[in-house]
Every structure is written in C-alpha cells, then in structure tokens.
Computed example of a mutant assay.
Amino acid sequence: ILNLDDHFPNNTSWRFVPKNYVFPNPDNPFNPPFPEAYYNVPSGDTLSDLDFVAIKIGDLNFSANPHALTSAEDRNLTGEVPFWAPAIDFAPGQTVVLPFRPGAADLAGYQATLWFDPTRLRLKDLLPGFSGAGDFGMKKVGEGQILTSWVGDPPAKGALAFALVFEATGWGNTRDLVGFSSEKIAAEAYTDDLEKRALRLYFADAPADKDLAIWDNQPNPFSDETRIPFYLPEKKHLEWSVFRSDGTLIISGEKWFEAGAGELRFTRAQLGRAGVYFYRIKVNETEKTGRMVLFSE
C-alpha cells in the first residue's frame, strides 16, 4: 500500500489461464502449477475457440486507478477525523518544520496520500511521532507525494503524529501547498470502534509554545553518532545532560538557539563506552527525557 515494492519477483503483472481449467485446490491456486497455454489443440478448432481468463496479479506500480469506478464521495464514511498543522508563511532558504497532530481521541488508524508542492518545498527530513518511519512510502517524494498508513493504539488527542522538515525554495504558506488527498491511497481514518471516517487536514495559527517540539534521538540504538532534532518557535535557551544507567553524569551543556530547526548530536567519543544512557533536555518549563543505547564496536 505504501509502494515500497513496485514489482512482484518471479511474476508478471498479468497471468492467463485457460477458461475451462478447474483449479484442483482453490485454497492454493499455485499448487499444482496452473497451465498458461493450450497444448494438443483438437483438429478443427480455430484460435477463436481458445479462450483465456486474464488475472491481474497486483497493482504495485499504481498503473490502475481503483477510484475510477467509484463515486467521489464514499457513502460508507461516518463523520471525519481532523488532523491539524500550523499555517506557516515562508520565504526561499527558510527551514519549515510542519508538525501533524490528530484532533480526535479515538484514532486507531489512518491512511492518505500526503501531497506538497515540490516547486516551492523540498523535503529534508521526516521526524516520527506515534507514526514511525515504516509507516511512510517515500518513492514518490520527488513528485511531491508521500504515502502514509498507520495503525495502533489510540494516541492522546493532539499528540504528535509526525513532522515534515522542508527547505523552502519559493514563497508561500503551508496552508496552500500541503494537504491530504486520495490520489494514490484513499484518505481515511479508523476509530477504535472500527468506524471508517474521512481524514481531513486543517491549518491554524497555533500559539508559539504549542509548536515547540523535541523528538527522540535518531537512530536508536546507534553505533557511532545519534542526534536529537528539535524545533523552536522563537529564540530559546536549551540545557541538556546525559547520564549513564548508574546515574553518572557524562555530558552537560547549555546554549541559546535561534528560532527554527536544530539538533543536538552525541558521539561514541563523547560517551566513551557501549551501554544504556539517559538524556534530559530542558527548554524553559518544557523538559524532555529519553533513553538511548550505544552499541559495542
């Protein structure tokens, strides 16, 4: 569904089976192998007497449009699940961090084609929230499309689903240049009581502090270096500490950072040895703690 594979190995998109063939085992049509040609054609038969059934194996490259035979409105949808993102004005050269948050407390799954204008926004990074890196298909990102599908325990209302980090290559506002569509994957959400709802993206000018975000370290575990991305809506003072599992302080620091996207980096050379470490980052009254694991060499 996320277009992670665009072909079937050892197979073709279409298979042709003689129309009069009866599968011995309907539960496993591939065993024994089915015929795909006529042999020993009776004398007197013509080509027009030979008939096949064509079977579409799959549509991993999106050459078929599953929505072509359906109406634009799905009558089975009951209500909607809103997602919220900030409306951000941007200019060429700016870094734009766009967090996505659900506006419902009973969300158990969603899927959509997330689109953006690639002529004015270039994707630099995708930062996970309760949606992980494996919930995204990135093969169409050069065309301004990200395929996403997630299922899991309902997160808290307003929890961070994920964030996109763009480099602006033109002028604009995210309200006009980013959205959900059903072009590749139908934009749908699912509640914890199995209701299917429409998935809508709304934009709002959120209070500045609400846009403050500090993500978990990536990668984790790691062998050489890990980073902790963050986004500051305005210039702020950060304090950070890293401890071994026994409570020994290994690293501490503080610094003023300008508004926008930034990150803290920690290396094997700084930490000294493999093991489990805990970090604490404080920005004004907001505090983030986490656990990271350094592999042995």
Rank of each mutant, 00 (worst) to 15 (best):
L177T: 15
V165A: 11
L127R: 11
T78V: 15
T78G: 09
A168G: 02
G129W: 04
E80W: 15
W171T: 15
F166S: 10
G137R: 04
S131V: 00
A105Q: 12
T95V: 12
D106M: 12
A87Y: 00
G170K: 15
F90K: 01
V165Y: 02
A108I: 06
L123Q: 08
K157G: 06
F116P: 01
L160K: 05
P102A: 10
F130T: 01
G142V: 00
D176A: 09
A104N: 10
T169P: 01
T78Q: 15
P82A: 07
W115H: 09
T119A: 11
G172N: 06
V151M: 13
T148G: 04
K124P: 10
P92R: 05
W84F: 12
L114D: 03
A108P: 13
P99N: 06
L123P: 06
K139P: 03
R122K: 14
A163H: 12
D106S: 11
E167A: 13
W84C: 00
L160W: 04
D135E: 14
F100D: 00
R120K: 15
K157L: 13
F100P: 02
L98S: 06
I88T: 02
E143Y: 07
F166E: 10
F116G: 03
K139F: 13
A108D: 07
P92W: 04
L107M: 09
A133T: 02
L160C: 03
A108L: 05
T78L: 13
Y110K: 01
G170E: 07
G129D: 06
L160T: 00
A91K: 14
G158I: 14
P102E: 07
R120V: 08
E80V: 01
F83E: 04
G142T: 00
D176K: 02
G109V: 08
A87W: 00
P82V: 05
L177N: 11
F83I: 10
P92S: 05
D117K: 09
A112W: 08
G170I: 06
N173V: 05
G132Q: 12
G93R: 04
G137Y: 00
L126A: 09
P128W: 05
W115L: 09
Q94C: 12
P102F: 07
R120W: 07
F83D: 04
E80M: 14
E167K: 15
G109E: 02
T119E: 13
A156G: 14
G137L: 02
R120D: 00
R175G: 03
Y110C: 14
G144I: 08
G152H: 04
K139G: 05
M138A: 08
Q111F: 03
L121W: 05
S131N: 07
A112K: 01
A156S: 14
R175D: 10
G152E: 09
G142L: 03
L164W: 03
T119N: 14
R120F: 11
A91R: 12
Q94L: 13
F166G: 08
L177F: 06
K157W: 11
S131I: 00
K140C: 04
E167S: 15
W150E: 05
N173R: 11
F83L: 07
V81C: 11
L127H: 09
D117G: 04
G152I: 06
